Simulated assay, not measured.
Amino acid sequence: MVSSTDPTASPLSRKRTERFSPSPGDDRPSDSKKLRALVSSRSFAEDLKAKPANNIALAGPHIDVIGKVDCKQALVFQLVDSGMRVLVIVQNLGGSVQDFLRRQQVMAMCLAELAGGKYLELNEDERLSHNQTEFIIDREDLIIQPSQGQWKFADSVPLRILSFDIETNVPLNNTFPNPRNDSAIQIGNIVQEKGDTTRSYRVIFTLDGCSAIAGAEVRSFQTETAMLSAWRQFLLECDPDIVTGHNIACFDFMYLITRAKMLGIHDFACLGRLKDRNTEVVEQLDSSGWQHAPVLPGRLQFDTLQYFKQRGKDVGCSLNTLAARYLGSNKESDVDYTIINRLQGGTNDDRRRLAVYCLKDCDLVLRLLFSEQNMCIEEAVTAARQSKSCRPFGSFLS
Rank of each mutant, 00 (worst) to 15 (best):
L79V: 09
L79M: 08
V80M: 14
D81K: 11
D81A: 15
S82G: 14
S82L: 12
S82K: 09
S82A: 10
M84Y: 05
M84L: 15
R85H: 11
R85V: 15
V86W: 03
V86G: 01
V88R: 02
I89Y: 01
V90H: 04
V90D: 00
Q91G: 00
Q91Y: 05
Q91P: 00
N92W: 02
N92Y: 07
N92G: 05
L93I: 09
L93K: 04
L93N: 00
G94L: 06
G94M: 05
G95K: 04
S96C: 01
Q98I: 01
D99A: 12
D99Y: 02
F100T: 06
F100G: 04
F100M: 07
L101P: 03
L101Y: 09
L101K: 12
R102A: 08
R103P: 00
Q105S: 14
Q105G: 06
V106D: 09
M107S: 08
M107K: 11
A108E: 15
A108R: 03
A108N: 07
A108D: 13
M109L: 08
M109Y: 03
C110Q: 12
L111G: 02
A112H: 05
L114C: 13
L114Q: 02
L114W: 04
A115T: 14
G116Y: 09
G116Q: 07
G117H: 06
G117K: 06
G117N: 06
G117C: 02
K118N: 04
L120F: 01
L120W: 01
N123P: 00
N123V: 00
E124R: 14
E124M: 09
E124D: 12
E126G: 06
E126L: 11
S129Y: 08
H130F: 15
H130L: 15
H130W: 13
Q132W: 05
Q132V: 12
T133A: 14
T133L: 12
T133W: 05
E134M: 12
F135M: 07
I136R: 13
I137F: 06
I137S: 04
I137W: 03
D138Y: 07
D138Q: 11
R139P: 01
E140K: 09
E140S: 12
D141L: 10
L142T: 01
I143G: 00
I143F: 11
I144S: 04
I144D: 04
Q145W: 13
Q145K: 15
Q145V: 07
P146F: 13
Q148P: 04
Q148E: 15
Q148F: 15
Q148R: 14
Q148I: 09
G149S: 08
G149F: 10
G149E: 07
W151A: 04
W151I: 00
K152N: 07
K152A: 15
F153L: 10
F153H: 10
A154I: 07
A154C: 11
S156G: 09
S156A: 14
S156F: 06
S156M: 08
S156E: 12
V157M: 06
V157Q: 05
P158A: 13
P158Y: 09
L159C: 06
L159E: 08
R160E: 08
R160F: 11
R160D: 04
R160L: 12
R160W: 07
I161M: 14
I161C: 14
